[in-house]
Structure formats: C-alpha cells, structure tokens
Design a protein around this nucleic acid. Structure first.
Lengths: 209, 209
DNA sequence: TGTACATCAGTGAACGCGCGTTCACTGATGTAC
DNA sequence: TGTACATCAGTGAACGCGCGTTCACTGATGTAC
C-alpha cells in the first residue's frame, strides 16, 4: 500500500486530500517520471475521483508547481540540518553540503528532473523571501567562514558559492545521465566532489598573476 | 517560410524527407519545447501527410533520438573547430572550449533540454566509437597540453577535464534556469567561466597537503 | 527505345486511447437561533 | 438540545480534443528484357 493511501478516508470527506495528492504525485513522479504523471493517476492513487483534485489545485500545472516547491524545500531543510550539525568554518562542512546535494538529488532522480526540467513552462520563479532562506545562503556563509578561518581573502563569497554550486550541480547532472561513468569507469561522485572542491578552494589561496 | 519547407517538393516524392523532418523537429523543439513536439507538427512543417514520417522513423522516439544525436554532433563539431583554430596548450583555449559550450547551449535552450532531459526514456546511450570522437576528448587533450606547457603535474587529465566539464555544464544550467541572475544580478556567464576555470587550474599548481 | 513490373515513398482517412477538465449532483460538516 | 440552512468537499459520468499510429491506396521511379 502506497504512502499516499495510508490515511485513506473511510468517510465521504477525505480530510487531507491536498497533502495526499502531493504525496501521491511525488511517488508517481519518482516511479514513472514527470512526463508520465497524470492527474487521473494522482486521484486514483489518493483514492478519490478524477474530479476531486480540482477542489485543491486549479489545474495540473498548479499541482506540479507545488510538488516542485516541495522539492526545493526539502533540499533546503537537509542543507540547514547539515550546517547545524557540522558548524561552519571547515572545508569538510562545505564538502558535506555538496554531499547532501548529491545525495538528495541522486536518490530522487525523476523528482530532480521535474525541479530542473523545462525552462519554458510559465511557472513562476520562487519569490525572494523564499530564496533568502534557501540552502544557497548557507553555502555562502560556509564559504565566508572558511575564508576567515583559513585566512584566505575572498572578495565575493556569493560568487565563489555560485561556482561551487555549479560544480556540484554539474557533477550530479553528468552522473545522473551516466556521462561520467562512460569516461571514468567506476568513478565515485563523492570522491570527485571532494577532490574538485579542494582543488578549487586551494586555487583561491595563491591567486595567479 | 521555415527552413524545413524551403526544399519543398513539387512532385509526389519529397526526395529528402528524412532530413526535412529532422530540420523541422529542431525548429519546432526550439520554438515550443520538446514537450510540445508532435509528429503531426513535424509532418505539417515538412509539408507532407501525417503518415509520411513513418516511412523514415519507426516511431516518435526514434525521431527524437536522431534529433538528440544531431545536437551532440553539432557540439562536437564546434568544439573541434575551436581546438583547430586556437591550438592546444594555453588556458585561453580551455576557456574558449567552455565558451563554445555555453554559446551552443544558451542559443538553443530547448534543444539542450531535450539533449539532457528525461533520464528515464529507454533511449540508448551513444556508442563508444562516437564517444571517442566527442568534444570531451578534445578537452582532455587541451588539459594535458596545458599541463605540459605550464609544467603542472596532472595525474589524471580525464578527471580534470570531467571537473571542468561539470563546472561549465553546471554554470550553464544554473544560468538557463535563471538561478544565477537571482543571486548575482547582472552576472556574466562567460566572465564567471573564465574566473572559475582560472581558479580551478590554479588550484592544481600548488597542491595543498 | 519501349513495355511490364516490382518497389519505393507518398496520401488521406480513420482509429482509438488517454488525459485534462467540467458539470450537475450529493453527502458531510459547521453554525445561527 | 434540536432544527434549518449555507457551505464545503466529495462523486460519477461525460466531453472533447489531440496525438500516435495504421491501413488500404496510389503515383513515381528504376530495372529487366
């Protein structure tokens, strides 16, 4: 029995259909990909009629956007947790943040595709308040803290954090699409992440002329 | 008049329908996204009946795969051209290779989505022979050459090239999804590419303990 | 050089399915008095 | 505490569209003799 059905209603009213639909959507997308996702499936999976979801979501896009938001939210939470547990200042924390990203993403590849897929959908970008609290700023602080501890002059920690994000994102993407395996057999993403992060941060120590 | 229609047949037989369909597909995908792409559109755009494409492609997937292959092929060609023009050995060549990637991708965002989208489709990975001649190996050689010229010891140029690829790919992806703009207003991807490449390669010069 | 015929690459109409969405409805719940 | 009623959150049936794909067909082309 799927997670989405566990709270299945006995009565006419479901009680928490909105959440049940979101959970159903997450499960279905993870199993069959966002392409294959249908409203009908979501409804069936949540144990309601085809029409019921439209009491909670204007249309399919709105539901998908909610799922996407959920994805970024989860990532943010994981990130914040790592920062809390490890503290800021060490390179290991920076690497751990990257690991978290890799972990989160590779354990939910389809979900990740949804989060990053389709440039063109008219879906709105998350608003600013949401962004300020996003995992990215945790990384920025981790970078600043590392610079202070190691006495490395960092002009623009936001930019450095962006580079690190790009690297992790790229590595993950290449891995998920099995491009790395093809060129570097038996490659371990986490090893690569550590290695590339160390090299990059090391590059900040003694700027070339 | 679209490119796909220019060679429009006067006679019953088209003559080069296969290519016309590919061109039509590229145009349509670039305009409306791979999601919206339909066989019917492709046929109409090429000026033939709905059924005609099935003389050249078993089904929609086969056509899409051909388009995807075309995408990687084009990128490979561009890459090889840059290497030929600039020669190998300098960091500028490495950066130029990255620029080419950025350029190619950002000028065809939808196309790029197709190339990288959907982990799950049963589409086969390109075969090995094709891979050996891919742009990636040009980058590997560029890295090796740089190491020799600059007298930097590079254990594993394939791995270094992978990191660089991941960085460029990540930067491009973040840019296309306008995540970078949000955190670093007015960011210039090419500047960032140069900066991050320099920092990374610089990190190889004096390995930290 | 002309004719018969196989083959190829199109046509056009239709099918069938599945999905998003709507609509009139109905059962449950909450609230005013 | 009981009753009337508004509102909410479901139902189930249906619609309509669009797309992938098929099928019997036909016009054009190439080739054997």
């Amino acid at each position: 029995m799927s997670l989405a059905q566990q709270g299945k209603h006995q009565s006419y009213h479901h009680g928490d259909l909105r959440n049940a639909l979101l959970i159903a959507a997450v499960e279905l997308i993870e199993e069959h990909g966002a392409d294959q996702f249908t409203m009908v499936d979501a409804a069936r999976c949540a144990g309601v009629s085809n029409a019921a979801p439209y009491r909670h979501f204007k249309d399919k896009d709105e539901l998908l956007q909610a799922v996407r938001d959920l994805g970024f939210l989860g990532l943010t939470e994981q990130t914040a947790q790592v920062a809390r547990q490890q503290g800021l200042g060490s390179i290991d924390t920076i690497i751990a943040l990257g690991d978290t990203y890799v972990e989160y993403v590779t354990s939910r590849p389809q979900f990740y595709e949804l989060m990053w897929g389709n440039v063109s959908t008219g879906v709105d970008a998350p608003d600013d308040a949401e962004l300020k609290s996003s995992g990215f700023y945790v990384l920025v602080e981790a970078v600043s803290a590392w610079g202070e501890v190691e006495q490395v002059m960092i002009d623009d920690p936001v930019q450095v954090a962006t580079y690190l994000w790009a690297m992790v994102h790229g590595l993950t993407s290449l891995t998920l699409h099995s491009h790395i395996d093809r060129f570097v057999p038996n490659a371990n993403v986490k090893d690569m992440l550590r290695s590339t992060t160390e090299t990059f941060l090391n590059g900040l120590r003694n700027p070339a002329d």
